[in-house]
Every structure is written in structure tokens, then in C-alpha cells.
Design a protein around this nucleic acid. Structure first.
Lengths: 249, 249
DNA sequence: CGGCCTTTTTGATCCACGTCAATGCTGACA
DNA sequence: TGTCAGCATTGACGTGGATCAAAAAGGCCG
């Protein structure tokens, strides 16, 4: 097995390659993928910037190389719900279609690996392997979305916060190629408001629940953005999940 | 265009075929799919029955031929969240993997078209076209899931109910191959409890909001399970969506 | 260091929805 | 016809989280 899971939703990435691009990095697999290598180009975005995937003469399929971006949906009156976190190796932009009613925004500085949509489609035609990989990734994404639906529909504010922290802790551990430790410490890559948009809460509630978890000794805070988890087990319990970690970390 | 959209989440089905199985029906496409035809077999389930996709010597990938089934996730303490509605043409059971932490339950009597998982995988290998179709369907499903996340995270109870009714109305219209009408009338295929599980509400709230919509003249009820929508436009407004119908009905 | 801006925390209050409990409705069956 | 079992509705009440408002804590830059 040369692929390792490193993503909060179980998506697989190439473990050998610093880019960690399962479906894109040509170093990680057979010659078929060399095609992709020739077609790709890079773009970078600053934190806070909106990432436009379609414009005049520009329709992309892209995948994140580094940094974090978010996918957000908005109601007319301004209510916002984040529906996806784009982490390195994630794809965005639908190969076959024009759609995309999502805002894509860079949370940190982001580098994306882009393909012109039309070009990408022909490559997919010629290289079934790529389609298979995309299918795998999309199924993972779907599983993650469904887990998130459970969170949004049925969890309490406290459980929501705990769940998010667990996910971030796991992702952090995975990025640094560490196994499951009972103690963990990591930076929050999101503002309270972004967390709220993700969890279907208000930023005040997010802040209050984080304070509560701190007061109860479940987490410690260093400044406002760094979290220390003395006992991972305890945090996971707070998340209310049956999964003691479906993810193999 | 021989495929028509008929599903609430925009999934495409073969319009020429009564089975409406885009990815399964061999009549609807090139010879490649004949392979699938040989490998498939059918099973049927009664309303209320749990659909087991894996057991001793039985690992399926299956797709719904007729009837409605639901995908549900459960928390230890019994809180339930429905995460998917399986309608004719929908697939369930992950081709490549063993997972599936979902309850699959028949809502009405259901007929499913099944493939042994291993067999299905080899067919996919040999027939890239099938993989491409599954990718399309999965992407549609993902879009639907994301829309649902917006609903779960940010909509009020009344908006949730209205959204669900709009979806059911559209699906009904599509199944009967009718276009968008301003007046509509259809049966609810779900109990109040199932609606609650789907919307992240309690059954009491569902009942109350339906009563409220009726009181306000947005809908009419015939008995308890049949809904009459005098003005579709109005119901859609109640749903709070920006989309005046992203679906082309 | 001091001013300015953004993010975060905290408090007071409100209300949408959950909870608990009673009642009604419908259909199956003897 | 009565009884029973499942939905469904309705009411009374409590509460988790939203809302509104203000203070505190960081950056950032002169």
C-alpha cells in the first residue's frame, strides 16, 4: 500500500510525494498520469481571496496543492453554510459541467494545480485510471458530507465544536505523519466565524462552547488560535460519535 | 440528449427506459453495458425491511429499480439523521470498499438490482464507461448532499418543510414526466417521523409546521398523506432558496 | 509606546424548537 | 361493534442557542 489516508474524511493521498496529490502528481503513479503533468499549471491565491473557477475564457478543474480553501453556500438573506473544506489533494470544479453555486475562498495562502476544463475532460476520456481515482475521492467526499449532515442535524453545539476539534487534530497529526497520540496540540486554521459557518452555529456560540471546554479542562488554549488537547480520548467522547475513530490514525 | 433529469438532486436517468436505470439498463446504451446485464440479479424487500448489503458471502453493489429506501446514520444515544434518499436509479454500496455505517431501510416495497461486489469491480475495470457514469452520479449526489447541509445548518423549521415538499413535488412531476406546473398534488412517501429524521427536526415540529403551512393556505391536505399545492411559486418562496429551481423542470 | 482595527469573549435577553403528555384518527382484526 | 396499534395532531412548558450589545484582547503600524 503506497497510499496513506491523511485527510479528515478519509480521502487518500500519495504518501511518497511532498505534494500529496494522489490524482495529480505524476511521480506517484504509472506513466498514464504523465498526460496530466503536461496539461497542468499553477495559480496561487492569498488568504481571504475568492477563487474564481470560471470566468471569461477560464474554466478550471483544480486541485489544492497547499493551503486551505473553503466551499460555502449562501442564502439570499446572507445566511451562510460552509459545505466543504478543501485541503491539499482535494479537487474542485466539476469536470463535466458548468455549475458551481459555491463560493470558493482561500483561508490561508493557497496554491492550486489547474487544468482547463475541456482539456481535463479529454484526458479523462483517454485515461480511465484518472476517472477511477476521481470516483474514489468523490465517494470519500460523499461519506464525509454525510457524516457532516449527522453533525449539522443532530449534534449539540458542544458536540459540534468537539467534533471539529477532533477532525483538525487528526488532520494535523496526519500532516505531520504522526500516529494517534493521546496528547495533541495544534493551530486552528479558521476564525471563530468560519467555524460557526462550518458548524451551523453563530460565532458567539462557538466562542462560548470553546470557553466551556476550556473551563472543563477538556482543552487548553494558547492565545486564541492554538489548542492543546491533554486527553484525546476525552475530547472524542465529547464529540458524541459512535466512531472511536473510523479513521485509521 | 437522451438522458433526462428526473431526480430531486439532479441525477440523470435514462429517459427512454421504464426502468430508468442510467447506469444499469443495457437497453439504454452501447453494447459495453451488456456485461452488466449478465451479471445482475434482483432482490425485493418489503416496506420497513432493513436492506443488508453485506453478510456472509454476500457483498453487494445495488441500485434501486423501484420503490424508495433511505440511508440513515445513528448516534449511540439513538439520535437519527437520514443522510440520503434512495430513489430508482440510485446506487448504494461502495464498489471498492467494505464500509457502510449506514442503515439502509425500505420505505416502500423495493426492488433492487444487485451485483456481487467483486464481480462489479472487475466489470468496472473492463468498462471505463461505467466508472464515468458512476462518477457523474456521485458528483450529483455530492451536490445534493451539500444543498442538504445548507438546509440542515441554516434553515428554519418552516423552510425545511417547504424545501422537502418542493423536492417531493418535483420528483413526483418528473416521475410522471410532467413539466413544472404552478399547481401540484402528490402523496407523501414518508411518515412524519421519517420527515423529521431527514430534516433534523422532531416529528412534533414537522407536524406543527405542516399544519401552519396549511393554515396559511400555502398547501392543502387530503387526509394526512396527500398534499395539494395551489401555488408552487409560493411554496418555493417559503423554502428560502435562492434557486428558483436549479433543476430544469 | 499609543492609536486603530479586527477578532474574541462575555453578558443579558428572547424565541424557535425540543420535550413531555394528552387526545384524535384510521385501519386491522376478532 | 369494540379493541388495539400506529400514526398524527395539539397543548403546555422548558431550554439551547440566537440576538443584541458591550467590553476585552490581540495584532499592526506610526
Amino acid at each position: 500500500m503506497r497510499f496513506q489516508t491523511f485527510h479528515h474524511n478519509g480521502r487518500q493521498a500519495c504518501g511518497d510525494c511532498p505534494i500529496r496529490h494522489r490524482a495529480v502528481c505524476s511521480r506517484c503513479d504509472d506513466d498514464e498520469l504523465a498526460l496530466l503533468d503536461q496539461a497542468k499549471f499553477y495559480r496561487s491565491f492569498e488568504a481571504g481571496q475568492t477563487i474564481a473557477l470560471s470566468g471569461e475564457r477560464m474554466d478550471f478543474v483544480a486541485s489544492v496543492v497547499s493551503g486551505i480553501a473553503t466551499l460555502t453556500q449562501t442564502l439570499e438573506d446572507g445566511r451562510r453554510q460552509m459545505v466543504g473544506l478543501l485541503l491539499p489533494s482535494d479537487f474542485v470544479g466539476r469536470p463535466g459541467r458548468d455549475h458551481a453555486a459555491y463560493d470558493v475562498t482561500a483561508t490561508t495562502d493557497v496554491v492550486m494545480c489547474c487544468f482547463r476544463k475541456a482539456r481535463f475532460e479529454t484526458i479523462m476520456q483517454d485515461t480511465p485510471r484518472i476517472g477511477q481515482r476521481l470516483l474514489e475521492m468523490t465517494l470519500d467526499e460523499l461519506d464525509a458530507a454525510r457524516e457532516w449532515m449527522l453533525l449539522l442535524g443532530r449534534k449539540t453545539a458542544r458536540e459540534k465544536i468537539a467534533s471539529l476539534l477532533v477532525i483538525l487534530a487528526r488532520r494535523d497529526a496526519a500532516l505531520r505523519a504522526q500516529g494517534a497520540a493521546t496528547r495533541a496540540s495544534f493551530d486552528l486554521p479558521l476564525t471563530r466565524e468560519a467555524m460557526a459557518d462550518y458548524l451551523g452555529l453563530t460565532l458567539e456560540t462557538v466562542s462560548r462552547q470553546i470557553s466551556a471546554l476550556k473551563r472543563d479542562g477538556v482543552i487548553g488554549l494558547v492565545g486564541t488560535r492554538r489548542v492543546d488537547v491533554p486527553d484525546m480520548r476525552r475530547l472524542i467522547d465529547e464529540a458524541g460519535d459512535d466512531s472511536d475513530g473510523g479513521m485509521p490514525f
